[in-house]
Design a protein around this nucleic acid. Sequence first.
DNA 1: CGCGCTGTTGAAACTTGTCAAAGTTTGTGG
DNA 2: CCACAAACTTTGACAAGTTTCAACAGCGCG
Lengths: 247, 247
Amino acid sequence: MSTRDATARLAFEVVKTACSNCNLRELCLPIGLEADELKKLDELVSTRRRLKRGDYLYRAGQGFESIYAVRSGFFKTDVLIEDGRDQVTGFQMTGELLGLDGISSEMHTCNAIALEDSEVCAIPFSHLEGLSRQIHTLQHHFHQVMSREIVRDHGVMMLLGTMRAEERLAAFLLNLSQRFKARGYSPAEFNLRMSRDEIGSYLGLKLETVSRAFSRFQDEGLLSVHQRKIRILNTSRLKQLMSHQRL
Amino acid sequence: MSTRDATARLAFEVVKTACSNCNLRELCLPIGLEADELKKLDELVSTRRRLKRGDYLYRAGQGFESIYAVRSGFFKTDVLIEDGRDQVTGFQMTGELLGLDGISSEMHTCNAIALEDSEVCAIPFSHLEGLSRQIHTLQHHFHQVMSREIVRDHGVMMLLGTMRAEERLAAFLLNLSQRFKARGYSPAEFNLRMSRDEIGSYLGLKLETVSRAFSRFQDEGLLSVHQRKIRILNTSRLKQLMSHQRL
DNA sequence: CGCGCTGTTGAAACTTGTCAAAGTTTGTGG
DNA sequence: CCACAAACTTTGACAAGTTTCAACAGCGCG
């Protein structure tokens, strides 16, 4: 191999996505794969894509080709209806997948927007289907991921259908906390990447209601809140509050 | 083959589920399969199960082994939390699948309850995964079904997060109407299989609020309501109402 | 025929939304 | 690096929508 080839090859290796040495292995699709299987997966995950804050990863109505794994950063997904209403359907962080909604109709049904500068791995879906016909583990894991999304959605439906404002916010914060923890960050102290309005849209509340709930939590010593910087001071009371009987 | 064997074999054939001559082929998993593929699917769908009204098809916490296709009847799924709150997450009718939530943790995460005498086909999930490794079409169709469930859930989140009571009920009725229509029943006249309380739980409302919304619709000439018998008198106004700007 | 379950309706209480104003932070261009 | 504009957040007062509580009506079943 000439020096020039070697350099090109090296550059390629650097640019190329590689599941095999990605530190998200344990969160993302490659869970439990053997070395040779991982290698196949490496070939599958063709490209990375960088996004700046505010960029759309995809939009509702666009053709669906790939699902995306968040390598770094933070996203929201939302759906709009004609009359102008919109609903944030989820916030996605490192290691989570985006785009599963597009499989059903070959078309994305929601918007995915970066809430901070982010990077994703694009996984061409037809390739994923192909590979998962060869690798049982991958197939099963992918099914689990889709199912988990359905279970998560049921949780949100529960939240929207039965909880009141403060319970919703408590549930939201505890969920974020736990996801940060799972990624090795502090579960007690973190920065929100989304605005009050976006939280409100996710929780089915107006931004003022979200703001008031934050203030109340702070008054009661459950949190310290400075703009988007949150510190959870009393997790157990938050949990209690979340699952409290209605009075 | 002895007479006894032949009889046994016949009985087996009768009892046995057969996708190949099921009139739900176009709604359920077998969409677009070739004759020889259908035959394989027949072998997959091992058993039918009959349920009476009120019977549980499965309960939250039970081990997950199979998904179910509704052959006839009507189901609801719901999730409970410790403090006694519950949320109906969906109503399933002929040709729809139940149990997808169980894949993620090998355990059902909600209850599935028959709202009328019903019959389902049980599809052992590991077999389905096996077969879908052989039949692309089946694999892709199954992925579409899971994805459609996710999209549906987003719709419910939208409903719960942004709509007011009457809009929610209108959306609910229009959705039912369209599903009855797709099955060859009248889209304008049908019997609800669920109580006001169950509708309320699904829509995030109290049963009294549901009842009042029905009354108002009736007063305004949009519906005729006699207990659970519904006749839609003005579909377009219902649609308008559903997607109306907030005042 | 009456009991129980489901559904309807009214009035009052409560929660959340709306509107408005002011404070705070962030980003940009000079 | 400062100044100013834009975007976001907080807070109050009031309005609207939904729930709660209670009473009663209707239907189905034993």
